[in-house]
Design a protein around this nucleic acid. Structure first.
Lengths: 230, 230
DNA sequence: GTCTATAACCGGATAGAC
DNA sequence: GTCTATCCGGTTATAGAC
């Protein structure tokens, strides 16, 4: 599923070891969940000493961070093709969200821990933190691309803020997914389909010149909240 | 601040011990934060054995749950008077939210941990969990009261779902508060004032007979999502 | 700079005696 | 109900090998 090539030719020994440890950890996380996976077990299956695991990953949580950027990249890659091919906004958005859900599905079992640490304002894993700024920026940029290539015209003010709002929206979907215990995550898919429809309608409605005053007011509120991210 | 009388006359020895442990724990949490407070330190200052602390509280997290229901009750009490006196919906809602923010303010320092555990779907602290059902129900009931005594007429379908929606809204405010590092939590207060205004306008708009189809559609979506709480 | 092995520390949690 | 002893696992420290 999430196989990653460990090309020994292109990697130093250290990079290889690090990669092996990460793969092993994710494997165990998927098998048993996060809490149930001990650092000792990871080291053992990866055939390294416990101390060595800590040499490459400062803590168990840092393994999660590595996981984050990995799935994030997978997701970007998986989305590219769609973005080049599909012009319809609604289909673009829905497609992106589906790709995302597919990418993270294997990890649903330990999603709770992910989110738990992510929700802590002190944690570097917090998606609003300075630490995750690069990933966040990339992610928001992707939503900008979703809009960019679509067959819609947006007023400038909305166009600027919308990628961020869509990113927030996708975080909301993710939050729902985490709590979704339905078979095959049906509820999440249903929610996604319904809300994408609403979101697209709202975007079109909000672009209407008549809505300018309301739109301005709403965007000002959003801008204000955004400041609080720090 | 959060002094609670420990009336020995009215309590069995066990209840007393339990109360002492809880008070000591909250004291230490406020002093040093959650992570920095060890169960051993709590037991020591409370003059009980470590094992005894675990006799009364199944885990360190369960101390948080006790804290929850405590502030929850304080909040209910603080809100009662307002609800009996004020007829204007907007003022009622704003007042309730202000009371809430006041009650939790002393604990802002370890609010992160609160939310972190609360966000874990597995955790009993999760506000959507079965474990927190009693508190949740009470809280939703309070929002029903906010509507009940107000000078507005609502269509039946909306009246039924709205308390839950307001509860969700207040959770959103809380989430923002957790991440709010501004002096005196100014941002949170500003956000609250602005959004309360919007919420009340939306409620009035949504009650308009012309909005019936849209309202029905929205409420159906909400009802569907609500099922997923389990 | 990469890695092993081993021991130890710390704190949450549990068992079982009294 | 209360205690002591113990386990368990994240984390650290050390000392040394390639």
């Amino acid at each position: 599923m999430s196989e990653v090539k460990l090309e020994p030719g292109k990697m130093t020994k250290g990079e290889q070891t690090k990669a092996v440890i990460l793969e092993t950890a994710l494997e165990l996380f998927r098998e048993r969940g996060y809490e149930e996976t001990t650092m000792r077990a990871i080291a053992e299956r990866a055939n390294v000493a416990l101390g060595n695991a800590y040499y490459y990953f400062r803590s168990k949580e840092h393994l999660i961070q590595a996981f984050y950027s990995r799935t994030h990249e997978e997701r970007l890659a998986a989305s590219l093709e769609l973005l080049e091919r599909e012009p319809d906004l609604q289909k673009r958005l829905l497609g992106i969200l589906h790709k995302m859900l597919e990418t993270i599905e294997p990890y649903h079992k330990f999603a709770g821990v992910l989110f738990r640490t992510a929700a802590d304002p002190e944690s570097p894993l917090n998606p609003f933190s300075a630490d995750s700024e690069p990933t966040r920026r990339q992610s928001i940029a992707m939503f900008a691309q979703v809009l960019e290539g679509a067959n819609v015209k947006l007023p400038k003010d909305l166009k600027e803020e919308l990628p961020y709002l869509l990113w927030l929206y996708h975080m909301g979907i993710t939050l729902f997914w985490i709590h979704d215990a339905s078979p095959e995550r049906r509820r999440t898919y249903r929610l996604t389909e319904r809300t994408v429809d609403i979101v697209v309608k709202l975007i079109k409605l909000g672009s209407n010149p008549l809505m300018r005053p309301l739109r301005k007011a709403a965007l000002r509120l959003v801008a204000e909240l955004r400041e609080a991210d720090a």
